[in-house]
Amino acid sequence: MNMQTPSDEILMAYADGALSGAEAAEVRDAAARDPAVAARIEMFRASGRLLRGAFEPVLHQPVPQNLQDAVAALGAPVPGRQGRHLLAGPRHRPRSRMWAQALAASVALVLALAAGWRLGPGRGEPAVPGTLMAAAAALPAPLTAALDRLPSGEVAQVRVGLHTVGVLPLASYDAHGSVCREFELTAAAGAGDRSLRGVVCRGGGRWLLRALAEPAAPAAAEAGDGYLPASGGGELAPLLGLAQPLSPAEERQRLAKGWR
């Protein structure tokens, strides 16, 4: 007998029960003749059992709340729409300093890409400067680390992708027992006067981005279209229904407790 040893693909298909009767019979014969072939088949069987068994527990883990929320929110009105209306109003005066529209291209875009979501108010709508966007998105690790350790009013430079940005927490808020923080991101020196305002909230043991405001370009503000920059202290958080800033002492306590 000088039968050829079946290929690995055939042995695997046999182990997986994917061969037809005649093919399977050939492999059975080969395995009976050659213990190495039988062992190889058993290796493929074992690998299948092991993988199925090892990954089975994932099915029984609770789906993280932020993921459940994100799926539940599919098709819901984009919070940015609401934000636009809220941002428009006489009490918001245009800021005198230049807000570079290219800001989006530097900080916001990097963040958006890194966090895995799109920048912009909603599907099919043109991105309007000054809009709020909200997403229960995870942020890049260097940024969340800064938000973890910085008290409000202290700035730190962190690297996010290829960019260095200044992170400045502005205030912390109590949100039904959880904590939210408003912060400002500023592109590093040389990139001009560019900044972004954002709100993160604690969820599932990490910071999730709830809103990011890209200040309106001066042109838009001058055009009087009502989309004015979110400016001044703590402007974003109230728009999200966050009313009570934590006192410095309360904030210190929360920070020390890992924001729980």
Partner: peptide, 16 residues
């Protein structure tokens, strides 16, 4: 973007 997989920009928050 010139960022390789595993670089800082793609580092995701650790889920403790």
């Amino acid at each position: 973007r010139g960022i390789n997989e595993g670089s800082e920009a793609l580092e995701l928050v650790e889920d403790h």
